[in-house]
Amino acid sequence: MSAPSSGGASRDGYGRGLLRIAHDPRVVVLEADLGKSTKSCHFRDEYPDRTVSLGIAEQNMMLFAAGMASSGKIPIASTFAIFTERAFEQVRNGIARPGLPVHICGSHGGIHTGTDGSSAQSIEDLAIYRTIPKMTVIHPCDDISAEELTAQLLDLNGPSYMRTARNKVPRMYEDGSKLKIGSGSVLREGGDLAIISCGVMVGVAISAAETLSRESINCTVVDMHTIKPLDIELIAKLSDSCGAFVSAEDHSVIGGLGGALSEWLSTNTSTPLEMVGVRDNFGQSGASSELMELMGLNEAGICEAARRAISRK
């Protein structure tokens, strides 16, 4: 049994989001022994007839989901982010290739997961799922946005991967806030630099922007909760208006949000980008706050990156 999580943990929002879409009889929730941790357990309590336990067998769960989707169901399969990766080829070949509407949720993603140590800290999930054609890749920052984005999964025609986080973070949204899969949410506006962030780093980005404003560096902060498809329209606009970017993510700097931004910016603009993320190494056990400091996933890391990006304008 995992530690209790209430308040701003995105996994809690996912659990509530499942209940919001339960009215659709096509929705089926699949578990691999981690329902209490991913928070699909709330759906199980309310709708046991539409919850299927598949044991500690993630590869079977992914193809089981594909079979259900081919039969008209909308399966939502969750486990830890790292364990979804065990079934990567199943997701690629069995779900995405035929374009089946299976929605995967990987909880406990990132270094922020903390004391469980490096085996549990997925720092590459966003990158690998982003490489699969037809996949939508989502990483909400708090419980309120996670709930809303989960509810919107019903609007997708193809497969998706959503990473949620284990621990509580400050809320960035209020109940009823408008946000939409595929559209970055501008949480703060400034004309000197844009910080494009996702997940638990969105709150850190807001704090960094406040610090930078005291140096007269005015930042836009975006919650880029949808990594794929990337909101190119917003990025292009911010490239013109701000002229410099910092990406901030609890994920490897290789292939995730920073990688996605870099691909687009380098081929379409000369706008500088600095990346804050995990520098191609594994984590270890420790408190979330200790690990984030150790890896430079903190306010100071974003501020330094912002100054570097501005100096490259």
Binding site: A65, A66, G67, S71, G72, Q90, G94
Partner: peptide
């Protein structure tokens, strides 16, 4: 992969 897929079809 096919048996897992078939099982999904069967329970659906």
């Amino acid at each position: 992969m096919g048996l897992s897929f078939g099982l999904g079809c069967a329970l659906a």
